[in-house]
Nucleic acid binder design. Sequence first.
DNA 1: CGCCACTGAATGAACGTTCAATAGAGAGAG
DNA 2: CTCTCTCTATTGAACGTTCATTCAGTGGCG
Lengths: 188, 188
Amino acid sequence: MIAEKKKAILESTLKLIKENGFHGTPMSMVAKKAGVAAGTIYHYFDSKDTLIMELFVYTQYRVQEAMLKNLREDMDLKESFFMRWISRCQFYIQNPDMLFFMEQFVNSPYYPRCPQEHNERVQNEIKQFIEVAQQQGILRELDFKLMAIMIHSSIMTAAKVHLDGKVLLGDKEFNQLAQMVWDSIREL
Amino acid sequence: MIAEKKKAILESTLKLIKENGFHGTPMSMVAKKAGVAAGTIYHYFDSKDTLIMELFVYTQYRVQEAMLKNLREDMDLKESFFMRWISRCQFYIQNPDMLFFMEQFVNSPYYPRCPQEHNERVQNEIKQFIEVAQQQGILRELDFKLMAIMIHSSIMTAAKVHLDGKVLLGDKEFNQLAQMVWDSIREL
DNA sequence: CGCCACTGAATGAACGTTCAATAGAGAGAG
DNA sequence: CTCTCTCTATTGAACGTTCATTCAGTGGCG
């Protein structure tokens, strides 16, 4: 269990980073929003950098959890793909802070400094899915990393467009989009 | 024509932001790298924010220029699409600083503050392409903004993966990827 | 002489981090 | 039940640093 204050600090940082970016989000502001003293943050995190790194791990965990919750054993590969795609997209739409944090993080100098071991554990889930589908001749023979990241970017992009309010996505559009991505990776 | 020092400041900022992020890139460092005094930056730009905003406009201009240079009147829509996709992807691979700057910028709080008028001018080019192709029944009927941003994200993603060195992209892979994206947007 | 690009030390504000002090929770003894 | 000792959680003022920005001054050109 994550201590209540620790969680408050994580959630507050997430919100503030979305609004103000990494710079523009001083520790004093995080403290104020989380309802704790500045010093308290340093009880839970070594430094601002550590806080941000942990935020990344925390967010990845939450996304994975949301996605797996919706999967059922009896789904075929295509159904499973649609469910994964839509679950993740909806998760980010419901948690815009996490979406913007993630996008900022992976393009920042923090990301390369992130322990590879953690990333690999997360990637493994999708890797297995892709490899099984390739063996069955359902998906194109393409480097799984390339495929995984193309899927990922389509999810993030769709969620961002929706949150911008420029294009409203309903069930129909989610399925349309998942279908588009599916068409791009499946063996024709 | 952009003054030589102004250009040096823009290019230096680009490089430093890639390595250190927006935070982590003090004006003094920009000045040093550009070979000018700190005060000189303020001769050309009102503030750090202005500098970053102009960097965005500058980068978009350079990308557009690189892409249009490769287009020929006699290409059909599919050829034109492939050329656009590959040109942009290669441009970012040859200019990683711009890739990382762009990705950081659009996910930062700067982006929403960017003059909409400028963005629309850039989007217009791709908008016209998509609308023509839709009228001819070649592309799916889908909101052009959604389609445009899906294409954009696939380009950025492919370039990033290549630059990471995780997956090496040659001519064959570029065409494979452009084909995948094409399959996702075309009327089947 | 006036104008302009340019300089870089100086300035003041903002920031991340520290730490001495305090509060509180729990354990053990009487 | 209460007093005391201990350890942890928490506080926020204070510190030293870093940063964006300023400006008085320099050099060169027309």
